[in-house]
Each structure stands twice: as C-alpha cells, then as structure tokens.
C-alpha cells in the first residue's frame, strides 16, 4: 500500500500527446477559505466523451463549472491556474465570459427548460447572440438543433407548446437542443440523467454517443455503468483531487490506484 500523501497524486495518463482540446494546469478552486479543487492538471481530448466520476463532494461538478466560468456567478468563488481551450487561457482577463459560454454548451442535472414554448426554448441562444438574421434562418437552427437532439420527430407538431409540458427525458433532450443551438465546440453535462428513468436515460446516452462525432463532451456522472457505457476516457476524483485518469476501459478493468479500485468495486462512495 502506498503512503496516504502519495496516494493523492494523479496516476494514469493525465497529459495527452495529441488531439488535445482542453488542457488544465494547476487548477485550484476556493469557496471563500475552503479549497474545493486542489492543484489539478489534466487534458481533455477532442471529439471524445470524458467522464468525471467520484463520490459526492469530490469536486467533479465544481471542476466542470470551471470550463464555462459558471463559477463566476457564485460569490467568493476563486479559480487559479490555467484552463486552456484551443490555445486560449479562458481565465485570461481578455476573455469574455459571454463569448466563452457561447462556445461551450451546458446541460444541467435537473432538466431546466424555460417556461416558454419548445420553439422559444431552442431559439433563445441564437436570438440573444444574433445568430439568425431572419425567421427562416432561426427556424432552420431550431429544427436542426431539435433533430440533432433526437427530439424533433416527437415534438414537431407541438413546437408552440410549453417546454415544461414535456416528459422529463424529453425536457432534458430539449435542454441539449438548447445547448447545441449555438453550435458549441464543447458540451458540459452535469449528471444529465440523475433525474430520469432508465428508458429516458438510455435515449440520452444514445444521443451522447451520436453527438460525440461533432462535439467534445465532458460528462459528470454518479453512475459508473453510465461512465463505462458512454465515455472514452474517465477521470476519477476524490476530495478535490484527481486520483486517476485514463482510458475508460482501463480504469474500469484494471485501475491503478487503490482508491479507484475501491470506488469502482463499490466499497465506498
């Protein structure tokens, strides 16, 4: 057995050679005086699904919210270190958070459609960013996004119905459509299936597999099965540190770290 202080060092392959979309170096996140993320360095590959797993409170969601600077909206939250997306440090002063978020879509734990029509939900992003110059273009974007989210066929006759009238799984896919309506490069998913039943979950997972072809996806999940099913790379977090990261298959079949092993085999978490 390793000594405890040694055991919190990241093992596996945090740094990638090629195909890097995001590289994080020495990231720390503090809530007031409490440190939520400790000295974290990891690369995220392009057009792949990366899963963040770990017990509750391990900082995986906090880390996810660093990528689109959603932590900015929380008072006394401080982020240090570098997160570089396509050669740009997003925590650089020059970077505009609005512009950044237009490049990065986010899907939340609970489906949160706006209390507006399905159409308005999807059109929201393109509209505020001025992406469509006329109604036809906007229609295109809305329909295209709904199709990509695999929802169009189910709702094509009720685009004017409120988004909140859909079932939970449909709502979540609507939220995915809303996220991809501004054509992001990266999609962040914060436990997108935790509020859904197995059938709806299956549909979302299928969708994630489909989206992977065009988007880089990071998904935070509580379910190890889900991580195994949808992701190519998996990162295991514990107490604000990254314990192990590597190919999903390797992590689940042959974890290097004792903590990872314990977590995957269900000994804690």
């Amino acid at each position: 057995m390793r000594a405890p202080e040694e055991s919190l060092k990241t093992v596996g392959t945090p740094i990638l050679e090629k195909n890097v979309k995001i590289s994080c170096r020495d990231v720390n996140v503090y809530y007031g005086t409490k440190q939520a993320i400790k000295d974290l360095s990891v690369d995220i590959a392009e057009r792949e699904v990366t899963a963040f797993i770990g017990p509750s409170g391990c900082g995986k969601s906090t880390f996810l919210r660093c990528f689109n600077r959603m932590n900015d909206t929380i008072k006394d939250c401080k982020v240090t270190g570098e997160i570089i997306i396509d050669d740009e440090n997003i925590y650089d002063k020059k970077i505009d958070a609005v512009l950044l978020r237009a490049r990065i879509g986010m899907v939340f734990q609970k489906p949160n459609p706006f209390p507006k029509s399905i159409y308005q939900n999807v059109a929201y992003g393109p509209r505020i960013h001025g992406l469509a110059t006329n109604k036809a273009e906007l229609d295109d974007i809305v329909i295209g996004s709904l199709e990509k989210a695999g929802l169009f066929n189910e709702v094509k006759d009720q685009l004017e119905h409120p988004g909140t009238s859909l079932s939970g799984g449909q709502q979540q896919r609507l939220c995915i459509a809303r996220a991809i309506s501004v054509q992001p490069e990266l999609i962040l998913m914060d436990e997108p299936c935790s509020a859904l039943d197995p059938i709806a979950t299956g549909k979302i997972e299928e969708l994630i597999n489909e989206l992977r072809k065009n988007y880089t996806i990071i998904i935070v999940t509580h379910s190890m099965q889900q991580a195994a099913r949808v992701s190519q790379r998996t990162a295991f977090f514990h107490l604000g540190g990254l314990i192990e990261v590597g190919d999903t298959k390797k992590i689940f079949v042959n974890p290097e770290h004792r903590l990872t092993q314990d977590y995957i085999t269900g000994r804690y978490g």
Binding site: N68, M70, T73, V98, L99, L100, R101, A102, G105, M106, F108, K110, N112, P113, F114, P115, K116, Y124, G125, I128, H129, C175, R178, A179, S181, V182
Partner: peptide, 25 residues
Amino acid sequence: QSLRDASLGVGATQSETIIRVVVPA
C-alpha cells in the same frame, strides 16, 4: 436558480437573463 444557470450557460448576459427569463418566469 437553474433557470438563471441555463440562460447564463448559453451565453446570455445578466440583463438578458433577467429580462428574458427571470421576469417572464
């Protein structure tokens, strides 16, 4: 808060979030 997050998440400014999401809701 999740509605605000959703709006900020697609890149709306705070005033856009308030005018288009929070107040209508």
